[in-house]
Design a protein around this nucleic acid. Structure first.
Length: 273
DNA sequence: GAACCCCTGGTT
DNA sequence: AACCAGGGGTTC
């Protein structure tokens, strides 16, 4: 699924294209993981005017002029793509949002091969509760503040901590592996064993990496495309993710692949201590 | 924590 | 046929 840089890329495009527009209709092609389900979901969105579109962690947060909110979580294979008028529904499309504004109409299609993603309508109050439970946005605090969050359960592996949304919001498997490679720290190291210098280095690399990936409009490793249907360009800049068995770009040692927390994990056994 | 689950499809 | 896939909630 999209992680912070990919969700942020989509969010910027949607905010640019759709802020100020009104939802004329919602066509549900496949009902199930939207909330409320079915006709009620359609009813709660129809007619609403979009104030703006924000992001928190990996959630896209739709804010409406009437104060209500909708969340979109794309999970692993979700897409939100602005389609032109020749659009024909495809196999895994779940909903089409028809929007109207001063400059004409736009169709937004939500598709999701694995159907893990969800959309949810809720009040501003309920939305705030959900959003407040996330850890800080990594690009909105200092590297030192970020580093200080990587201390807690001493036995926890650093990779697990980086991916925990309550510790830091928005990092997933790809950027956790990449940040740890850049910082020269093995993903298996327990927090209690890291030096202050290592924690700060990890925090700085997380920030630099996320910013750089946003510049490249994210990573298209599998299903990800942005709101215009284009792939992100960061894939070729990945140094360890998906490169198990290949030579390390720094030292030539074969990259190892292990499993941590049910996720494929990639690192250089020589460069990462 | 670790294991399992939601689901489908691409690759080996 | 088996394994893999960028998430994350739930359950022991």
């Amino acid at each position: 699924m999209p992680e912070l840089p990919e969700v942020e890329t989509i969010r910027r495009q949607l905010d640019d294209a759709l802020a100020g527009m009104r939802i004329e209709s919602v066509e549900l092609l496949k009902s199930g993981r939207e909330e409320p389900v079915g006709k009620e979901f359609v009813a709660c969105l129809t007619g609403k005017k979009i104030k703006n579109i924000e992001r928190r962690a990996k959630l896209i947060v739709w804010r409406f002029v009437d104060g209500s909110v909708m969340f979109t979580h794309l999970k692993m294979t979700g897409r939100l793509v602005l389609e032109d008028k020749r659009y024909k529904p495809r196999k895994h499309d779940r909903a089409v949002f028809k929007l109207k504004g001063k400059k004409g109409g736009k169709d937004l299609v939500w598709s999701d091969v694995r159907q893990f993603g969800f959309m949810k309508c809720l009040s501003a109050e309920d939305a705030k509760k959900v959003l407040d439970a996330y850890g800080p946005e990594p690009l909105e605090i200092s590297a030192q503040e970020l580093a200080d969050r990587l201390l807690k359960p001493k036995t926890r592996k650093i990779k697990v901590a980086l991916m925990d949304q309550a510790t830091i919001a928005g990092i997933g498997n790809i950027y956790a592996d990449e940040a740890l490679f850049r910082a020269g720290v093995r993903p298996t190291r327990p927090l209690g064993e890291l030096t202050a210098k290592e924690r700060l280095e990890i925090a700085q690399q997380v920030q630099a990496l996320l910013k750089l990936s946003i510049k490249h409009r994210g990573t298209s490793a599998n299903d990800y495309v942005d709101a215009s249907g284009k792939q992100g360009k960061f894939l070729k800049l990945l140094q360890v993710y998906g490169r198990g068995g290949e030579e390390c770009v720094k030292c030539g040692t074969p990259i190892k692949r292990i499993v941590i927390g049910q996720r494929g994990t990639h690192y250089c056994p020589k460069c990462q201590k």
